[in-house]
Design a protein around this nucleic acid. Structure first.
Lengths: 216, 216
DNA sequence: TTTTGATTAAAACATGCGTTTAAATCAATA
DNA sequence: TATTGATTTAAACGCATGTTTTAATCAAAA
């Protein structure tokens, strides 16, 4: 009667969005069940269809919600006037933090990762609204670090950077099994970010050398 | 009556294994349906339970079959007396070829990749029989390239190499969408392998420099 | 207080799934 | 040829799913 009603005051619709984000991120669209989502949201099974029409529309609603949420977080690392090296380091740190930190709505980035490998019709707008902008930033950093190299090589370098990071997400189960070093990734985000940054800086400069040489 | 009976002569059991490998690799265990597998194998729905007991046992049978198959392919790159650089290049080429080439049973490596990110109880033996041995080879190469660096750093370098390669598998849908450069990966395996090799050689030597410096 | 529209609740529906059953078919043997 | 055991087939079973239905409940307006 006093307080503690914060959750209960919340619209059912809102609770469904949060629960659905979690479950969709954990299990994927097909594997997620309306019943689990509703249980988690403390709502009736029919709530999904009442508030969103059906499961698929709930999924896209979760995506819209998750993207607006993402906009409110610090993004697109730092001012463009910082040295490219620092901007790469910051890019990697933010990316890995988002991917591995179990913070509040951690499911946003897990959902993104899932769309990358098991796309639904939500992927196209996701690419346009979130992925391509970030990739452009990264490619700009690479270009600045490497100097005059073909766009194809810029793309491959960016892929190398992103691939190293996503590996800790996609292959997490096997990494845990294969080496105790990777047992608790969440607590070593900074160390991993540092490694990826150094490794990549060197890799990029190798490409720079290679294509500078070819041109002379 | 003459020939052309090669397929029909094949045991139903065998056809089920091949069909199941394909379907499990494409859709994952839960998402794959016994009915699709049987349709693809030209068998009755009850065939799975008659020959394997149930869906789960079929899955592990596919895994055993796929592993014995893998043993018959050239593995563990080259003699140990080759320079570490060459051995890394060969490792990367084989890994990427297996992952991206649509050759005969291409589903073996796709199945492995799936187990890495969405493990079942099959993962443990998969790690012991296939993943750890290959990882050991890679780490040995890294150690030889980098000289005296902490095991932790060796592990991270190996993760960087593998991550770059798996990226082209896991993020393939989004790569296709994001840049025409990645439209037809299958036909650029050699180019990608070359990039990953150069990028990684440089990254590894950066780690070597860093930790040599620290020790002096 | 009564009424009204929005929301929730319980139950049922249709569908697709893994699995089982029981009969039909086949291939080898006696 | 007749018999027997292995294999295949068609049909059904039980269960979980997404969705719909119908009634109950609630909150605000009349």
């Amino acid at each position: 009667m006093i307080a503690m009603e914060d959750d209960i005051l919340n619209d059912t619709r809102q609770r469904l969005l949060d629960a659905a984000g979690e479950v969709f991120a954990d299990r994927g669209f097909e594997q997620a069940t309306v019943r689990e989502i509703c249980r988690k949201a403390g709502a009736n099974v029919a709530a999904v269809n009442y508030h969103f029409g059906n499961k698929r529309k709930l999924y896209t609603a979760v995506f819209d919600y998750s993207q607006t949420w993402a906009d409110n977080r610090i993004d697109l690392p730092a001012a463009t006037d910082a040295p490219a090296e620092d901007r790469l380091r910051e890019f990697v740190r933010q990316f890995l933090r988002r991917l591995l930190d179990p913070g509040r709505p951690s499911w946003h980035d897990r959902l993104m990762a899932r769309e990358m490998s098991e796309p639904t019709e939500a992927l196209k707008t996701l690419v346009d609204d979130e992925i391509r902008p970030r990739l452009t930033v990264l490619q700009e950093i690479v270009r600045e670090l490497a100097g005059e190299i073909p766009p194809r090589v810029v793309a491959k370098c960016a892929a190398s950077v992103v691939g190293q990071m996503l590996h800790y997400h996609f292959a997490r189960p096997v990494l845990k099994l294969v080496s105790p070093i990777f047992a608790d990734l969440e607590e070593h985000v900074e160390e991993l970010a540092d490694h990826v940054t150094r490794f990549s800086l060197s890799g990029i400069s190798a490409m720079s050398d290679r294509y500078r040489k070819d041109r002379l």
